[in-house]
Design a protein around this nucleic acid. Sequence first.
DNA 1: GTATTATGAATGAAGG
DNA 2: CCTTCATTCATAATAC
Lengths: 225, 225
Amino acid sequence: MEVLRKQIAIYATICEQLVDLHKSLTSHHHHHLAGVRLGNIYNDPSGGHKFSGRQRWTPTPIQLQILERLFEQGNGTPTKQKIKEITSELTQHGQISETNVYNWFQNRRARSKRKQQVSAPNNNNVESEVETEVESPKPQQNSVSMADDNTCFQTPNMCSVDQRAKNVEPVFPSEASSKPAGNVGQMSYYGSMLSNPRMDRIIGKMEVPGSYQSYMQGDVYNMTD
Amino acid sequence: MEVLRKQIAIYATICEQLVDLHKSLTSHHHHHLAGVRLGNIYNDPSGGHKFSGRQRWTPTPIQLQILERLFEQGNGTPTKQKIKEITSELTQHGQISETNVYNWFQNRRARSKRKQQVSAPNNNNVESEVETEVESPKPQQNSVSMADDNTCFQTPNMCSVDQRAKNVEPVFPSEASSKPAGNVGQMSYYGSMLSNPRMDRIIGKMEVPGSYQSYMQGDVYNMTD
DNA sequence: GTATTATGAATGAAGG
DNA sequence: CCTTCATTCATAATAC
């Protein structure tokens, strides 16, 4: 009897933790779970009514045309004021929000930049590492001394596994029918999956880039380190 | 006694399903999350100069959880002292630096603010025509998105699970090897578990804290013109 | 139907 | 603090 009660309590805890975890994950990465409110109508004059649910805004050809034109004109300097105007204008041609416009310009600009970087290699001719995508000789944000002490600081994944492949295997077994939770005392399943097994003892120190550094400097407390 | 046994069975089922769901989500979309954490997991035999890895810190789910909690607690402006403490704590769950924590809070706050300032004007009137969550063919998250019958997610993977309420065996674990059920397979869907009274509270926590839908509603940037 | 590409969106970090 | 950039992720569109 006591055992049973305990079991119940434990399960309750586990469930809560699972839910909490789930919430964290979904709220940060699974936007498609949450913010599906934009493409509900998607007045696509081109005919098809894709009521399949649209998580992602897709510009109509007309919108795209206008956006492209604006981009070429102002060349990627969308002021907030402009954005509003543009949005108002584009709304007449389909569902759109200022966020969409903002994102569009941001992406457009970034993409252009990147393309040019790739197209115009300065003096390197050995950058043909991976042609899968624009590997781009990333000029690296030389903060201060990030690659000096411990190069492997925050790098979650050093080896360049192609994440674009959708069939990458998670490290933990699929366990479709293995065992969801081993011991009830602790969340062993998620524990093993989500918490790190003390493999990090190499936490040296980190770079101190501008903002934070200045932030720190203003403090009365000294960096007791 | 019987009630207790039943409770255990129910919890076992719930846990299984949560885990399964979570696993589906993470493995489907977040392969990187599965092997998250500083990935020394993969042997890098190359050991060469293939160090094109990412340099951007990515919080582990646990770190994220903790950070979110701290943020919600009202410590919107963590002092340096706080940051140090938090960092120390989070270091136990993955590589992290004070800068990361600082940036995270900064970003979190800024974006939270940005979203709120959108929700606020929406309170009185709905001048923004982008606001039209009525008649959405795909009912998105509202409060208990998962609790809906077939709401599922847009994820094709998830939606392909049929509702065959298979063996929801009680499998109340004994005190020793309390391992909830061995096989969940396609999981019998949420319907069964949601009808449980205990699940009520948990489902309440399930709801996504509303990040993206409000983000979509209006502009992202403020009009500092 | 499956794999690949294009691109909208999310977010960590830097700058001001 | 607020804005912007750079990078990454997920998915609609498309090629196969």
